[in-house]
Amino acid sequence: MTKDHANETAAQVHEDDLRRRAADDLKAARTLAEAGRRAPLLGGEIYVIWGLAVAAALLVQWAIVVRLLDLSPWAIPVSWFALTGAAALVSSRFRAARLTHPGAAGVGNTVSGAVWRAAGQFLGVFAVTLFAAGLASPFDADASGGERGRWIAAGFAMFTPASFGVYAIAMEASAAAAQAPWLRNFSRLSFAAMAATVVTAGTPIQHLIAAAGVITSLVLPGVLMMRRAQGKSDD
């Protein structure tokens, strides 16, 4: 073996070694990048709390409308404000705890948090404005509040389908950002609930359908999200 040949062989071995190490580095980097990308979605508790509160408010509203509960119509807005206020209070504690959970700062949870925050703000402003407009132009169940009162009543009837549309969009965005395709099924359920509540708008059955829709499209994915987050932290 000549000296040149020996040098060439040594260079080849060195290069092969570099390649092997580079391949190993790339493989490890890919695994870590995927681990970072696939942090579990957090906030399942918040889905459950809001889902239960909204479902309860819808059931109370239905019971008052069909006179199962002998209460003044004012009990409807009171129950809504009480239940959603309690949900906001309880969920704020979970939201703070979520910040210390692994994956909380990741892209999936950041996008999901931002989308749901905007969704909540939209629904909150919509509901409060509608209620304020209703106070300014009183209406009742037989729409005797005049033309404007009928529009306000229609706004309330359409608030429910709009909410399901907003849930669906927020879940679709969360699913895409967190690479959680399973959540898309609940987005579709939410769209189905939207359609069902449009068809039944203005009738008492809309409240029952909406309550069932909220349970299946918010509470159920919330429970699954909690289980998945728990499973990841147990790994």
């Binding site: 870590l32 970072g36 990741g106 892209v107």
Partner: peptide, 14 residues
């Protein structure tokens, strides 16, 4: 390398 790889996927982490 591991830190950069993880952050490239997660965007941010504690």
């Amino acid at each position: 390398l591991a830190v950069m790889a993880y952050l490239s996927g997660a965007m941010a982490a504690d």
